[in-house]
């Protein structure tokens, strides 16, 4: 397990190291030019954020119905990763929009719902940190609501009028743009899996430490 983890970590590092070379070779988009290349890190970060939110929500649901500590650990790990990758998406998006739309931010359906989704997971982490005993169940319910928001955020560009590109830009990508995007998505997903395993391990070790403290007091 440990050796497999190290091998996968090396693979992830190699994939991230090679990604810029693929992105540089990708053709320029006709209307946006160079700034569109932010897409190759912006889209994968949101895909990982949505995956982390889903993992967090499923973990929260399992914890609500089974009260298994392992489910709670997965929920915490998922929430933290959703915040980290959501932050990358929320910063890279306005940098792209400043050039493409002429503004840093627009309070439209997509951008606002994405911000609200991110804030839900920030709220989850704050509740876990400062909520005190018993906050696990309440935060698990918040995780569930966060996960339920994911499809609305994803489809918002197709339903409401927004400055953000539609979801079809990904499915209709031409060769040359498609390869670097899916390479980056794979690198981000691999990194997410490795970070999730490590973060769950951290929670498991923390509960072991708590058990040791109880044993010491006894």
């Amino acid at each position: 397990m440990n050796r497999l983890y190290q091998l996968l970590l090396l693979l992830a590092v190699a994939m991230f190291a090679y990604a810029p070379f693929m992105i540089v070779q990708a053709p320029y988009e006709s209307t946006m030019g160079l700034v569109q290349k932010i897409f190759y890190f912006h889209f994968p970060s949101w895909i990982v954020m949505f995956t982390a939110a889903t993992v967090c929500g499923v973990g929260g649901a399992l914890y609500l119905f089974t009260s298994r500590p392992a489910a709670d650990r997965v929920t915490v790990a998922g929430a933290e990763l959703a915040v980290v990758f959501g932050l990358i998406g929320l910063i890279t998006g306005p940098l792209w929009g400043r050039k493409a739309w002429g503004v840093w931010w627009q309070w439209d359906a997509r951008l606002t719902s994405a911000l609200v989704l991110w804030l839900i997971f920030v709220a989850y982490l704050l509740l876990r940190k400062y909520g005190g005993p018993g906050s696990e169940k309440l935060s698990a319910a918040i995780a569930l609501f966060g996960m339920a928001n994911v499809p609305f955020v994803y489809w918002s560009v197709n339903v409401w009028r927004t400055v953000h590109p539609k979801t079809t830009v990904v499915t209709t990508l031409l060769p040359g743009m498609r390869e670097p995007l899916w390479w980056s998505v794979s690198a981000f997903m691999l990194l997410f899996i490795l970070l999730l395993i490590s973060r769950v391990r951290l929670e498991a070790r923390r509960s072991e430490l708590e058990g040791l403290f109880v044993a010491l007091e006894d």
């Binding site: 810029p20 160079l34 700034v35 290349k37 932010i38 890190f41 912006h42 970060s45 990358i88 910063i91 890279t92 940098l95 792209w96 400043r98 050039k99």
Partner: peptide
Amino acid sequence: PLVMTAYAVA
């Protein structure tokens, strides 16, 4: 600079 900043942030 926007592209460089975006990748640096990530």
